[in-house]
Each structure stands twice: as C-alpha cells, then as structure tokens.
Design a protein around this nucleic acid. Structure first.
Length: 345
DNA sequence: AAACCGGGGTT
DNA sequence: AACCCAGGTTT
C-alpha cells in the first residue's frame, strides 16, 4: 500500500494515538502540548543537534542548572557557557546560544517561526520545533527521524530536504501540530530506527511502502560521507596537568575553546618545522617530547605530538578552562611522563 | 548542492 | 569499521 491523500487523516490519528500512549517522557517536555517552556525547548533542540538524546539529557541537566533562565544565560560570560558545553562537541552551538540569549535579553523572546529563525544558531529545524512545541504554530519539523520515517512510508530511497519538508508539511496534523512533531520524532527514535526497525510495533505500518517491501531498513539509502582526513600537529605543554599555557582557539576548528599552543604540520613540511614555528611564536625552548596522542573527530583523525619546554607566557589553571577531549588527552601525557624528563619544568 | 563542524553510541 | 545522531553556517 502507498500513502494517498485520502489516507492522511487515518495516518495522523494512528500516529497520535500511539504517541499519546507510548511517547517519551523527556525533561524538556515541560508545560502543556503546544505550550512548552520555550527556553527549555530551545536549549534542548540546540543541544540535540547531531547529538543523541541519551547524551543530550546529561548536558541538558548540567546546562539548566548552570543557566536556569535565558536572562542568566545572557548575563554569563561566554567562557562559562563553553565550560558547561565542554566535551559535547560542535562548540559553535554554545557560542550561538549565548549570542542569541543576548538578543533575547534585549528584544524579548520571539513567539513566531520567523522570529526564531532570525537568531544565530537557529535554522529551519530549530525554528519549526520551538514555534510549534512552545507556541503552537503549525510548522512541521524535518530532522533525521522525520527524514527516515517519511522515506520509508513513501518508499523513497533518496529523499532530498525539500522533498522531506513537503511530505512533512502535508502530513502535519493541523489540529495538533506540536504533538504531531513530537510523535514523528519519537516514532523515528523508538520504532522506525535506522537498523532493525520494530515494524510490528509501528502504528503506521499498514501505509508503509518500506514495510511492504520486506526490507524497511534499506530506506533511505546511506548518505555518502566525506573521507576522514589525517592531520598531523605539534603542541607544547608548558607547565603541568593543572596549570599550563593555554591559548584560545579562534579558527573554526574547536573555535572558542582553550587548548595547548598548537601548530599543524603543513603539506611538504616536517614535524620539526612546525615545532620550530611553534617555539618561535611563543619564545620558548623545547625541552623534549612527551608523547603522541590521537583523536578521531568524524571528519578527521588528528595525530598530535606533544613537547615540553621552558619559558613562555604565564600558566593558567586548567580546571577553569573549557577544553576539547583532544587537549585533555594531551594533558594526560604529563602524568605518564611526570618527573622522568624535565625535573625543572 | 556540498563542505565543514565533535564526540560518542550502536551494530 | 560503518553508520548515525531532534542541524546550522558557509561557500
């Protein structure tokens, strides 16, 4: 069977009946249907961008404890926001969240899709989510769950973003848009999973082309992903695991976080060249090699060789800074080599 | 449209 | 080792 326009009301009803019975109880689902707390919805939606719910919950509790209101978030230094985000990845999310909080503190909280869309870090998905879940606007969300559910129902192996949005728009229940959005995402997360979908539990399997095909997991086709690039870099650990020279990373790579002074080994360059450049930049003498750490980051594999040294700028407390996992690994080398190489450092 | 941006969970 | 995750921004 395929989904025809005449089926839409029945599919909505089946989906919402399932959701009313089996939907998830999540900490940001505070307040009535279509009238959730907008601050909680917004923070959770940003936190859950490319982040699994189980993990997002931990950071959500941490973040709401540190910044209970949008006013508290706006008043906090961005360093504190990044510290709360430490280890969660995609740190532009935290910087944009803080910037947007400043706008909201000055101009007030938007109540429409258009108003939310104008804030930094708020794209089509997040604007649709907040405007529907917190303000009851009839906006269909399109995320990874929605894409997978609709691709399977319609039997579409190569769903484009405009296609997904159009299918979501036409299926959206105009009477219960907020519940509908939560329902499709719950279905995608709990039943219509990427592998081994639980079709026997699915409220809409009767209308699902992928289910009828006998191979529901083959929809949609896997996305072609960019190859992982290898990156070599050198870093200087000046100080120890508790107090060290730290620099603020300004590039798109871990931007906003603090980290050990680092130089990337360029094309046709040796590690020694990068190390000499790094030492000259900081005005320090390299004392010896502490070791090498590797760190995988979806799109690249970083091999970082860490050296000790003498001199250089003032040390700062490591515990106060927001660091990536890469820098925590590098700092961990100090414990492994403590006392064996540089008695005076 | 495609590249880029972290880190971890699941299979 | 793939593949994915309540995506957004930039090119």
């Amino acid at each position: 069977m395929t989904l025809s326009p005449a089926d839409l009301p029945a599919v909505r009803a089946a989906l919402l009946a399932w959701f009313d019975r089996a939907g998830r109880d999540l900490p940001w689902r505070v307040g009535p249907e279509g009238g959730r707390d907008p601050y909680r919805v917004w923070v959770s939606e940003v936190l859950l961008q490319q982040t699994q719910v189980a993990r997002g919950r931990v950071y959500f509790e941490r973040f709401l404890t540190a910044f209970p209101t949008v006013e508290a978030l706006a008043a906090a230094p961005v360093e504190a926001v990044l510290k709360a985000w430490e280890g969660c990845g995609y740190y532009a999310r935290a910087r944009n969240l803080h910037r947007a909080a400043g706008v909201i503190a000055r101009e007030g909280m938007p109540t429409t899709h258009e108003g939310w869309r104008a804030l930094p870090g708020v794209g089509p998905y997040t604007a649709a989510a907040v405007s529907s879940l917190a303000f009851g606007e009839a906006r269909a969300v399109s995320d990874g769950n929605v894409r997978r559910v609709l691709a399977r129902v319609h039997g579409e192996r190569q769903p484009t973003e405009p296609w997904v949005q159009a299918r979501a728009d036409e299926l959206l229940d105009p009477a219960r848009p907020a519940a509908f959005n939560e329902a499709v995402m719950d279905l995608g997360a709990m039943v219509c999973t990427p592998r081994n979908p639980r079709c026997h539990e699915c409220p809409v399997s009767a209308w699902c082309t992928a289910f009828a095909s006998g191979e529901p997991a083959s929809f949609p086709a896997p996305k072609v992903r960019a190859a992982v690039r290898q990156v070599r870099a050198v870093a200087l650990l000046l100080g120890d695991e508790r107090e060290a020279v730290l620099e603020r990373r300004e590039s798109t790579f871990l931007g906003g976080l603090m980290g050990l002074p680092t130089e990337v080994v360029g094309e046709g360059e040796g590690e020694g060249d990068a190390l000499a450049r790094l030492a000259a930049r900081l005005g320090v003498t390299v004392a010896g090699e502490l070791g090498t750490v590797t760190h995988t980051m979806t799109h690249r594999l970083v091999t970082l060789t860490v050296y000790g040294g003498r001199g250089g700028p003032a040390r700062t407390p490591v515990a106060d800074a927001a660091l990536s996992r890469l820098d925590h690994k590098a700092l961990g080398l100090w414990r492994a080599r403590q006392g064996s190489l540089f008695p005076e450092v």
